[in-house]
Design a binder for these strands. Sequence first.
RNA 1: GGAGAGAUGGCUGAGUGGUCGAAAGCGCUCCCCUGCUAAGGGAGUAAGGGUUAAAAGCCCUUCGAGGGUUCGAAUCCCUCUCUCUCCGCCA
Length: 421
Amino acid sequence: MLSPKLLRGETDKVANNLARRGHELDVSGYKKLEARRKALHMETERFRNERNVRSKSIGQAKAKGEDIEPLKAEVDKLGERLKDLEGDLKVVTRELREVELGLPNLLDESVPDGKSEEDNQEVRVWGEPKTFSFDVKDHVDLGGEQMDFEVAAKITGSRFVVLKGSVARLHRALIQFMLDTHTQEHEYQEVYVPYVVHAGSLVGTGQLPKFAEDLFRISHEQPFFLIPTAEVPVTNLARDSIIEAEDMPLKFVAHTPCFRSEAGAYGQDTRGMIRQHQFEKVELVQIVRPDASYEALEQLTGQAETILQRLNLPYRTVILCAGDTGFGSAKTYDIEVWLPSQARYREISSCSNFETFQARRMGARWRNPETGKAEVLHTLNGSGLAVGRTLVAILENYQREDGTVEVPEALRGYMGGRETL
RNA sequence: GGAGAGAUGGCUGAGUGGUCGAAAGCGCUCCCCUGCUAAGGGAGUAAGGGUUAAAAGCCCUUCGAGGGUUCGAAUCCCUCUCUCUCCGCCA
């Protein structure tokens, strides 16, 4: 959510920034609504004041033993009008909040213009796409019987997978390796969190109210959802709280499954493990002082890249252009790993600075020692990394001519010393 | 699942219809005193919003959430959520 003050005070400026994303803010509609809210608000306050003052005088009159009946009747009438006003104000406030919750974040100045993925800018490239002297197979062929989409479809449906044997173990090894690296070398605290969250948490991180169709909703009575990313429960750790400056930055890493309905992705990446309804991810989250968030974004992105470097997987990092930057993000780097079967880079991590966008929705603040006040903090997150896609990248990049796959050196300790899958 | 207790400011914790945005303590800030591994005294200290060029001041809202009673609710009633204790069940 944007600062209501900023939105009110500099509506046109905000509209211009949002236009870079292709989001059109209805300025006159917003201004009209806001003007109505303000008028109602002031009128309501006036009536409340009147009521409070008079009620107090009734109390005093009663204490003196005076007749208070006529006074009561008078204030009673006032109360009726007040009730109407409060009702109207509530409706308008709710409408306005709906509008505010639907607005994406402001973009950082360093975000390049552009409409789509094609306008993203390469920031750096690491490693070189390996050349193969034979026809490369994709991960589905390489996984063979140990990557079973058919049985998963029987159990559940499309976009699920069953992993077996050494592929299942490699999958688990990747999780361990990522968690160990981030906790031991990058000083993240490992956390275990709920995979089911209520709507408030999703509003906090920005998935709701706008992107409900991307989520799996469970339970009929209570609005519970499966998490689409660990970002939701982990960032919400700071919900409704005030963090002391000396405790910052808070750095959390969590491994969780992620569940996405992938509505609207029909026909995309239907083969293999690239796009699944359920996948594992190791997620990095930082809760930081506002003046430190951009430094933290660079750090966090670099930490995610470390994993690919250790696995010796070629990748590149791009900065997302205005049109491709996610709803809540002010600035996002995507890390893309090289997939030989597709002969192109594919997203494996997305690292974003949300500035105050999520914190404001969540009520997450920190105590600024300079002002002594509780102020809205900044949140960031990034995949470190998407486990399923990392598995895909390993299978494809480490394949041999005979269809076997070499185990990356960094993972052998997690694989009982095996050198081949 | 059954029975009971509770939810108050950064924290602990008083407060059962008006003078309570709320005692006290802790913490924090400032000042005074003191010279020795410290302590003592005083003052201030909830958040959000409106009015303002800004501040002061004034006003509104907020005592888990939502609804209700009342001229007036932290305080009474209803619903919900969460926490704790005991019993039952259980990975």
